[in-house]
Design a protein around this nucleic acid. Structure first.
Lengths: 128, 128
DNA sequence: AAGGTAATACTACCATGGTAGTTAATGTGT
DNA sequence: ACACATTAACTACCATGGTAGTATTACCTT
């Protein structure tokens, strides 16, 4: 599966997330989507998309005067590799230790804990 | 608490982790510690430590001919901020979603799931 | 036809992380 | 005393992510 170790910066990842939700977005659309969080110039987004295409992260097709971009890498794959990298950084590879860090280092609400418990139960069910 | 958003690269974080476990390490000791995972030149580690000291991440004192370094930032604080950043990247701030990603995107053993369950229970107990 | 507008292309720049060589100082052993 | 080893200082370099200005192209409207 060639793995390829996606080493993504924050902005690139954010753009990918946007494209996963809304494929075939024009530069203008991605720019608009990111506007509230990050006030970037239009050309910044355009440049980023071009760089990302050169890296094989996205691709585009022409539609009239504008380019429509879509992610070339799967959300699942990238999330996995981002998560893996996180776990590696946070706790030298131990998932439970990583989660433990997350739990102890921030305020976690009752609801979140309940939800987490449900997640684990589901994972257990799926496991057998 | 000024937060300060520690933006650490992999190597810098790894060096900090090493110093948390063994404070007052010489460059040689840090270098030796990292040797198995990353075969870096001695000078690379030394340079990194100097750069990190300039950023306020570590500090040193002189002991004879060599410098003994120790982390200036607390493990808890850095872990928190690294974890926070991770959650942000992975799932726009939702902890449960982040954990969900981690669970679904990799093989999780029965033992790990049990341990996770225990973690949640403990967190709940602590919460009330 | 002309002028405005929207789009991409190209180029440039900066910061940072990472990597290491070279140099200089200082101590150590024979 | 002299060679050798250890150590830190300085310098340099490269890749990448991020940011945006300027130039060019093409379309649309009046």
């Amino acid at each position: 599966m060639k793995s390829s170790s996606h080493r993504l910066g924050d902005l690139q990842l954010r753009i990918l997330q946007s494209l996963w939700v809304r494929p075939d977005s024009s530069v203008a659309e991605v720019h608009a989507e990111l506007k509230p969080e990050r006030d970037l110039a239009y050309t910044t987004v355009a440049t980023m998309l071009r760089k990302m295409e050169a890296r094989g992260l996205v691709l585009h097709r022409e539609e009239g005067r504008s380019f429509l971009y879509r992610a070339k890498v799967a959300a699942a794959e990238v999330s996995r590799s981002v998560g893996q990298h996180l776990i590696e950084r946070l706790s030298a590879g131990s998932l439970t230790e990583a989660v433990s860090h997350l739990l102890t280092s921030r305020e976690v609400s009752r609801e979140e804990l309940d939800q987490l418990e449900k997640l684990i139960k589901e994972a257990k069910r799926r496991a057998q």
